[in-house]
Design a protein around this nucleic acid. Structure first.
Lengths: 343, 343
DNA sequence: ATAATTAATTTAACCGTTTAACTTAAGCAA
DNA sequence: TTGCTTAAGTTAAACGGTTAAATTAATTAT
């Protein structure tokens, strides 16, 4: 079983392999009668065409590659999917689109040894989706790859030759700060990863500043914190705020995972949320619903990001061309219990 | 680029394709001199052998398939990876092992239409790892598949013809209950999914009962709750307990995700953890560290489960045989802040 | 010196498809 | 009847590797 080939079918049906191939591919060259004979043989022998052979012949692998960054900083070295809690949602989104189109997805770590290039070539990957943020040298590296490529969150100028799917991070930052301002807060801390090195953080920060300006609140640089975008990073910052008797009445953390770390350190120090301090996050990871109180946050629809990415790839593949589109998704404010009016 | 074949290399080096193939496969037949010539050409032309072609010729696809259940009950229909928070860890474990052995992993939903069988045949998957629990008819279905298969958490008698990787759930249940008993608790609730339909829950329940018996505590059936293994399932049970003024001083939830739901409903109702009630979970999902207080739990090493699964497959593949081993992993008690001595 | 052995390399068949090009037979017009 | 189209198949060459068998060259034994 599993070993029956197109020749077996042809022999069984008493026709040539070409005829079998033609009915398999819906090429209208075969009489209804012969066609039925062939379909019968296929059924009887439980024949399944080999995608491998098809790929060799057609040049298409029907494989979409997904590259994830391998971070050594993660809790578990080499842990691919858990480093960033929404990689798995992103992948689900991709899978949702590709599933019924005959494509499979292949996942690889994206390490500095550039093994991924071998991988793409040797597996003859049809399209590539790259998650996460990488140093700029990467763009030169991948520009020699001759398949449709989608980058997520690549704001850089020189990334414009690829497909891009992004979030309106500036607006998200604005919405978060605006929400806190509307609740009466004036001393609003901003917490994120490196603002210099990441356009994501930079844009969210811009949005934050715009909201402050609009409300005539002077930016207080002492309330801007940068740390690793991890639970522990947030926890450390929370501790620092508590110890330094930080005057902020509200905190905008540009990542839920950091917001949750901050919340934990606040709560452990007897600081009540939202009575003493409001916290808003960003992303709306699943766990944002599970905290006590629930985490108010700016949602980005990661599943949609995955779907859009896959659709851009599939569209290029279908039309047999390489285009480059940018899709900008819009954020959404999700209000839960962690924010409240200032006393 | 990406289009250079073994024939190009052969021509460039002035040898036959066979010679190139032999040095590629490390077959010791070629003079050092010729070998260097060939290696030079490979480098110069940036040649990468096509795995597809290799697969066709050798019959191996170097692909490991992973089947995940597609649950319609999940928050997001068709959301593959988020339904169960440790699928992604499991996959990371598998990927960790296969990464440097030249294997890639392919992920598919495991739906009742049995599309996965076509998938295995047409992709010529070399080995299969099945996650999650399925109705017993599945076992007949998959027994006709002629590749090494690993089942996770399949305790059923008729699953013994496959590789299995399991956790000592009974011991885990015992450890959880024992921990609470050691803290002085006597009224200990047990919360899980269906005990009848799942060996996992059944075994954890057995362990719980063994610990009670050992401590001469009479089993109180009123303290046994069954619900969906989701955050909301736990939340509903928590509400029910609060409303019915449940006499339990401690709760053992046989899944962290439920424990977290229970915690949330307790905390929202002014019930303090661990002062008023202790809670222990099971699994040690990542978020168990992030709750306030941190969730005491029985850890199962999911990454290890993934690694072991992959190793069983790879071992069979290497030795070109189909064996069937069972690996029983041991749980570990992780004490955090959600459990404390009874007042 | 010749035959036998061994080492290095090449030839060609094969893996399972697709598809361009070819064949055959039937249908139709003049 | 002859020639031209068209429909329905078939043949055979690709696709890019692997590998058994054949070939050639070099070495050793007799």
């Amino acid at each position: 079983m599993g070993k029956v080939t197109i020749r077996d079918v042809a022999k069984h049906a008493g026709v040539s392999v070409a005829s079998v191939s033609y009915v398999l591919n819906g090429i209208d060259k075969i009489t209804e009668e012969t066609k039925q004979k062939i379909l019968n043989s296929i059924r009887e022998l439980d024949y399944k065409p080999s995608i491998t052979a098809r790929c060799l012949s057609s040049g298409e692998s029907k494989l979409i590659g997904i590259c994830l960054p391998i971070t050594e900083k993660g809790d578990i070295p080499g842990d691919l999917l858990e480093n960033n809690p929404f990689f798995s949602e992103f992948i689900s989104g991709i899978e949702f689109v590709t599933r019924n189109k005959g494509y499979d997805i292949l996942i690889s770590g994206f390490d500095r040894n550039m093994r991924y290039k071998d991988w793409i070539q040797s597996r003859r990957i049809d399209g590539l989706i790259i998650l996460g943020v990488y140093p700029k040298t990467i763009f030169e590296e991948i520009s020699s790859i001759n398949i449709p490529i989608v980058l997520s969150d690549a704001y850089e100028e020189y990334a414009s030759e690829f497909h891009r799917v992004m979030l309106n991070d500036e607006l998200g930052g604005y919405m978060a700060a605006r929400h806190l301002i509307d609740l009466g807060h004036k001393d609003i801390a901003f917490v994120s990863g490196s603002i210099k090195n990441s356009y994501i953080n930079k844009n969210r920060y811009q949005g934050y500043k715009r909201a402050l300006k609009e409300a005539n609140i002077k930016l207080n640089k002492n309330l801007v914190y940068e740390e690793h975008v991890t639970f522990n990073g947030g926890y450390r910052i929370g501790m620092e705020m508590v110890k330094s008797r930080c005057e902020a009445t509200a905190v905008f953390a540009a990542a839920d995972i950091m917001a949750i770390g901050i919340m934990k350190s606040f709560l452990e120090n007897g600081c009540r949320i939202p009575e003493d301090v409001s916290i808003i996050g960003f992303d709306d990871i699943k766990f944002a619903q599970y905290t006590v109180p629930g985490l108010t946050t700016v949602k980005q629809d990661i599943i949609m990001k995955g779907r859009v990415s896959a659709e851009m790839i599939l569209s290029d593949l279908k039309n047999n061309q390489r285009t480059n589109h940018s899709v900008l998704l819009q954020p959404e404010l999700i209000v839960r219990g962690s924010t409240a009016s200032i006393k």
